[in-house]
Every structure is written in structure tokens, then in C-alpha cells.
Design a binder for these strands. Structure first.
Lengths: 337, 337
DNA sequence: TTGAAAGCGCTAACAC
DNA sequence: GTGTTAGCGCTTTCAA
């Protein structure tokens, strides 16, 4: 069947296990013909090395962990594609963990990595993650870490991010140019790095335009999906309806369109809309949604590539690396293009 | 820092490693007070067992593999949520592999599992997978396997599916009742189980309605995204435009709406549309999309629960299990409701 | 109830 | 270039 070990290969070939081991790892101290023979027998018997034995011995697992808040989000699922692509090329395996926006869960997950479970970690933190003690603890145990997208500002570690500040600024400028006088920013978490930066870009654009910074222009949208929908519905009531709106994350987009349909609020005539999202449905919405589209795939690939560099080259100081990959404004009808 | 082993716990406690090991596994042959002491020291020193040592010794890894064609699809990403939830409860880890609809890649991936890399496998096969030799090979090496959603009909193995035939039938009946005279079925692969069944339901409904089974009613949509878009665009040209349409998988939905917008084809007046999808954007499309919504989360959970049962109870014959979880028709405006 | 010791399959010194 | 051997950290007989 299977379960064929290196020992059996050695017996079959009449040579020592160490020779087989080295031959399989293509060591320079083995003759080409021995290697050829070993390889032949190995493929013939369909030898698959036992990863656990190897990992135990070498203290490395050829496995990385990806910890994200959720998968059912275009950004993360596309990013996983990028990660998987690089991992596959490198011969690494990918463990997926979902923190479900819970710091407690995130902490539990990271705690397990201290035993050498994985060779590296890619993480996009929860919206509850303010302090990064659980992350530095993992890093201190020698685990290479790369943050992607949602980072922890106070931790010195590798980061792959997009230009959230600029994107927030550009999105807002775009709304202003199209004629919005008082755009609002829908915020999901005041602690989340991406939210803060997008928000900062929003504020900068408002200031530059000389718009008085009233407190109402940043609208917190928190709680369950239903609660968020209710908050947005209230916001778009004719009485206090803004004339421009930025959905700072993907999950705010459906409730915005839904509320507009319910209230008979016309996009872009009554309210211009820009959304931060990679939704494939954006162009087919009515009106088509103007988006800030993040380079999800590239970010996944870049973060994975960086992590592998950190894993493989000990001389490489991962923690100093920061890569910024720009997002793009995709202008469509919802902003009044 | 960490890297604390069972040996050090033993030394700290002044007892034997075997005693510590048993205490940690809550063995009945250890006294309650010894257990308490061991546990106390273990938590104090933040002991994390080395999974690789344990896996090597016990020949099991507390890890399962999930092999799917892609993640950037609502069904799969929601299903992963369900899988992860159960895995977490059970203390299992989840490895993700993407086959990208390539049989070759799928085969490569499965081949690695023969060495005991994982304790179980959940798979949704590629659209190229007709023969399941690579899968039976893995099963023969003793690996418990559960198919979910996209199964391999000719393999006797556990299955968690939805009622694709009935859904295809219901979707078609729905279009006919709403007034479509010649609905068409957009098909992505004639070998894919879900496609075949949905298609069979479609054909049955047509036959029952006495509609002559012309060959043109099943439209193959294959190739790249661009090619699919072109095929759909051509289909919806006024000349040969059908009055009803079933998008049999999620990725066909955007090109259908896009083509209609380009051609000025009105949904549902010119063409009624039903889509098989879990897209959160379905209700906000214009018109809102009538969907066959699959129980993605439940299917993920059920499949995982079944797999763990197969892993943990050797007396349980996994291969006989089949669970069918029904999909639901969500009636919205696109079908002329 | 506890402990000593033999490996799980592989790799890496170190001999030859 | 090739072989011998000692573990990686843990579990599990088997003996005490």
C-alpha cells in the first residue's frame, strides 16, 4: 500500500538509510548514480516522506499559518489565492485559522504556534486587537511574522499593506469633486489600522476643502449585521441624509444599497457612494459601484513571498520590511461619474 | 522563552516523563493529585505539546485537509466557516489546498496525503475530475474522506450534498410558472456532479411542461472569464435571446447582468433569471436576483462533523453516509416575481 | 499508581 | 561517498 519508509528504500537498494536520506535531499556528497537509483526506487514504490518525522527532527514543518478575521470576504478570499500560489511553489502547506474578530480567539490560536507548529505566520488582526502582546509573544519564541492588510501599529514587524490613507483621501476628494458637500465616512472600528488610516485620509480631504469638521461626519457602524443595517437605514432617512458616503469596508456595501432601495434614496443623485471592496458584483450593481479596489491577490503573494524569505534566510531581518501596494479607484456610476 | 518540553516538566516536578504524559492526557491510571500538580506546572510554564512528536508517535496529526477548486466563491468561503467551526471545537487544524479546477493539481495534492500528513480529507472535486483514481488511492491508504458539494459519483464514499436535481427542477418550474416559454440552462461542465444534476432537473421540468427538448436549451459556458462573458453576450443578442435563464453557478451571474446592461436587455421583462449562488449581493442587484441558495455553512459543518466521526470511531463506516441538505429558492425580482 | 525504556521515521554528526 | 548512530519530543508497553 503506502506507509513505505526510508528504511525500506534502503533495504531494497542495499544501502544505508542515511545515504538514501541524503540522496533524496539531493546532497552534494552523494554520487549522481546513487541518487538516480534512489530516485528510481523511491518513485517506483511511491515513497512519500513522513512530514512529522522530518519536522520533529529538523524543527521545521514546511507549514505556515494564516490567521484572518473571516473568509467570507472578497479581500481575504482573494488574498488566500495569492498566498496559496506562493506556498505551493515553495512546497509549503497552509493552515487556515479564523479569529472571527475575537481577540480571545486570536490569542488562543497564536498560543499554539509557540511549540513550533508552523514555520511562519501571516496575520490580519481582529478589530478588537489593540495591544499585540499575544503576537509579540509568538515572535519572541522565534516565529517569523508578516502582517498583511490589518496590522498592529505598535509592533515592529514585517507589513504588507495598501495605501489606506491615500485611498481614503482619494475617495473623499472624488466625492467632493463630484459635488458632495458633506460626505460621511462609515467606520467599523476605531482601533483597526485600516479604518484609522482611511478615516484620516477622509478627514484630511475635508479639511483641505475647508469643510467644518463636524462630529457627525464619521458614523460608527458596529454590532451585528442587523444592527449595522439599522444604523445605516437611520442615517439615510431623508431628514439627516448625507449627500456622499464612504463604505470603508466591504460588508457595509449591501446594507447601504439596501437602505437606499427601501428609502427611495437615489444613488448618486441623492447620495454619492464609494465603497472599499473587491466584490466582483460591484460593476453590476445599479448603479455600478465606484470602488477603492485593493490589490488583494498581490498583497497575499507579496506577504507570502516575504514570509518565506524570512523563514529561509536567517540573515534577513524581516521586521524591518514594509511593502505598500497601492489600491485603485475604480470610477463607476454610484459616485456620479 | 518557550520550547518547554515534557521532560522539563518532569524534572520540575521530580517525577517521570511518562507520568507527566499520562497526566496530561488525563489517563485513569494517574492519581487526581498528581494530575493537578502536573496541570498546574504545565500552565504555569505555558507548556505547549510538540505536535510533530506526538503525531509521529501516535500516527495521527489532529489535522484535516480541505481541497476545493477555489476560495473566492461564496459557497466555498462560507463552507470553510462551517468547517473551521467544527474543527476548532474538536481541536483539529485545517489545511487548505486549492485545486484551481485542475485535475493534475488535485492529484498532486492528494498524493501527499498518503504519508499520514492528515487524519482526514474533505474534498469538492474539480470540474475536470471524472475518474477518481487519485481519490480512491488516498482512501485505500486508510484516509477517511468526505465529499462535499461536488462529488465523484462513481466512488463509494461519504457525501454531503444539496438537492441539486430538485433545485434545478424547482428553478425551472419557477421560470415556467412566471411565464418563460423557452428557458435555457447555462452549464459550466458536463462532468461535474452538481452541474449534471441541476441540468437533469432542468430537463425534467421542461419535459413535464411538454417543451420540445431542443439542443440549444443547454448552453455550455467554458473557458476563461472573458470567453464566458463573450458566450453569454452572444446568447443574449436580441436575435436568439431566450426568455428565461438559469445561471447554474455563481460565477455566471456577473456576466449575465453585465451582458444585459450592455445589450439593453431587461430583466425580467426580456429574460427572467435565476442564479445558483450565495452571493450576499443578490438582494441588492437591480433587479434583485432570484436565487437557489445553498446551505453552505451547514454543509461545511455537517461534512466536518461526519469526517470527525469517521476519524474517531473506527467502527463507523463512513463510506455509507450520505447527507442531503436542501437548498432554498429565494424568490426576488429577477424572475418576475 | 508510577517509572524505565523502546521506539515513531527521519536527519545530521561523525566515522570509515 | 557511504555507513553508523544518536537523538528530535512524545506515547506506550511492561515492570516495579
Amino acid at each position: 500500500m503506502s506507509k513505505i519508509t526510508i528504511r525500506e528504500l534502503a533495504k531494497e537498494l542495499g544501502i544505508a538509510v542515511s545515504t538514501v536520506s541524503k540522496a533524496l535531499r539531493d546532497s552534494h556528497e552523494i554520487s549522481t548514480e546513487t541518487k538516480a537509483k534512489v530516485l528510481e526506487v523511491a518513485t517506483r514504490l511511491n515513497y512519500i516522506p513522513n512530514l512529522y518525522a522530518s519536522s520533529l527532527r529538523r524543527q521545521k514543518s514546511r507549514t505556515i499559518a494564516v490567521v484572518i478575521p473571516e473568509v467570507a470576504d472578497s479581500f481575504f478570499s482573494i488574498a488566500i489565492n495569492g498566498i496559496e500560489e506562493v506556498a505551493r511553489e515553495k512546497g509549503y502547506h497552509v493552515l487556515i485559522y479564523l479569529s472571527h474578530e475575537s481577540l480571545e480567539r486570536e490569542t488562543e490560536i497564536l498560543n499554539e504556534f509557540k511549540s513550533g507548529r508552523v514555520d511562519g505566520l501571516m496575520i490580519s488582526v481582529t478589530s478588537e486587537t489593540c495591544t499585540g502582546n499575544h503576537i509579540t509573544a509568538a515572535m519572541n519564541s522565534g516565529l517569523p511574522v508578516v502582517f498583511f492588510d490589518r496590522i498592529c501599529e505598535d509592533i515592529q514587524a514585517a507589513r504588507v499593506i495598501t495605501d489606506d490613507f491615500e485611498s481614503g483621501y482619494i475617495a473623499t476628494r472624488h466625492l467632493l469633486e463630484k459635488g458632495s458637500l458633506h460626505p460621511v465616512f462609515l467606520s467599523i472600528s476605531s482601533t483597526l489600522s485600516i479604518n484609522q488610516r482611511r478615516e484620516a485620509g477622509f478627514i484630511k480631504a475635508l479639511q483641505e476643502a475647508g469643510i467644518p469638521e463636524e462630529k457627525k461626519s464619521i458614523i460608527p457602524c458596529t454590532g451585528s449585521d442587523e444592527q449595522i443595517a439599522a444604523q445605516i437605514l437611520q442615517l439615510l432617512e431623508p431628514a439627516n441624509r448625507p449627500d456622499g458616503l464612504i463604505a470603508s469596508v466591504e460588508k457595509l456595501v449591501p446594507p447601504v444599497y439596501m437602505a437606499c432601495q427601501q428609502l427611495g434614496c437615489r444613488i448618486p443623485d441623492d447620495v454619492r457612494v464609494v465603497g472599499f471592496t473587491n466584490l466582483p458584483a460591484a460593476p453590476i450593481l445599479q448603479p455600478a459601484l465606484t470602488t477603492i479596489t485593493q490589490p488583494a491577490f498581490e498583497m497575499g503573494k507579496t506577504a507570502a513571498a516575504l514570509l518565506f524569505k524570512g523563514i529561509e534566510k536567517t540573515s534577513f531581518d524581516l521586521s524591518k520590511e514594509t511593502k505598500v501596494i497601492p489600491s485603485r479607484l475604480m470610477q463607476r456610476a454610484s459616485s456620479g461619474a
